[in-house]
Computed example of a mutant assay.
Amino acid sequence: MSEITFQVDIAADRTRVHEALNSHDGLTGWWTTAVNREDEILFFDFPEAPEPFRLRRDRADRDEVRWTSVGAFPPHWSGTVIAWRLSDAPAADGTRVLFRHTGWPDEDPDLPPAAYTWGMLMTRLKQYAETGTPQPLFTL
């Protein structure tokens, strides 16, 4: 199986980064303006997507936020796991984020464009956590 991995140091404390990954205001501040929740299922709507992405929140503590894709759309995400591990940034005050999106079939043609999008999203997460200014990549 293949995976997408990024590491970024964010000049914000762990609580602020955790809130950006685990709250409605946080997620709409850097990812998409259309986020809904039913119990532990998060629904993410995107322009031109025929239905929302459905992600089950499996873990949301101080050190890790982890979701599993439980929807049929997009089909190449089905069963994949998205995780952010949070730790102290070693060189300065702030938070180190290790991002992983695992469970992709080897040589999946959708992996490269997904990796590109996640790279842009990690930049938006960093900007949002550091400034508090919403700049979601996707808006509806």
Rank of each mutant, 00 (worst) to 15 (best):
E3S: 10
T5S: 04
Q7K: 04
D9Y: 02
D9E: 10
D9Q: 10
I10K: 01
A11K: 15
A12F: 14
D13R: 01
R16N: 06
R16Q: 02
H18R: 12
H18N: 08
A20I: 02
A20C: 13
A20K: 02
A20T: 02
A20L: 12
H24V: 05
H24Y: 07
D25H: 07
G26N: 02
L27P: 00
G29R: 00
G29D: 07
W30V: 03
W30S: 01
W31F: 08
E38D: 14
D39R: 15
L42A: 09
D45Y: 14
P47L: 14
P47I: 12
E48W: 02
E48K: 09
E48R: 04
A49V: 05
P50Q: 05
E51K: 13
E51Q: 14
E51A: 15
E51N: 05
P52S: 12
P52F: 14
P52G: 03
P52N: 14
R54F: 08
R56I: 01
R57V: 15
D58C: 10
D58R: 15
D58Q: 14
R59Y: 08
A60V: 03
D61K: 07
R62E: 10
D63L: 03
W67S: 02
W67F: 15
T68F: 12
S69T: 10
A72F: 05
A72G: 15
F73G: 00
P75S: 14
P75K: 13
P75G: 07
H76M: 06
H76V: 02
H76S: 08
S78Q: 13
T80I: 06
V81Y: 08
V81C: 07
I82F: 09
I82D: 07
A83L: 11
W84Y: 06
W84Q: 06
W84H: 11
W84G: 01
L86N: 03
L86R: 11
S87Q: 13
S87W: 00
P90R: 06
P90F: 00
P90C: 11
A91H: 13
A92S: 14
D93I: 03
D93C: 04
G94M: 08
T95N: 08
T95P: 06
L98F: 09
L98I: 07
F99L: 03
R100S: 11
H101R: 11
T102V: 12
G103R: 04
G103L: 03
W104N: 05
W104Y: 11
P105A: 08
P105Q: 14
D108G: 03
P109L: 07
P109N: 06
L111C: 02
L111Q: 09
P113C: 11
P113S: 14
A115H: 13
Y116P: 01
W118D: 04
W118F: 13
M122W: 13
M122Q: 10
M122T: 04
T123A: 09
R124E: 07
R124P: 00
R124W: 06
L125S: 03
L125A: 09
E130G: 08
T131C: 06
G132R: 12
T133E: 10
P134E: 08
P134Q: 09
Q135F: 07
F138K: 12
F138V: 04
T139H: 03
T139A: 15
L140C: 04
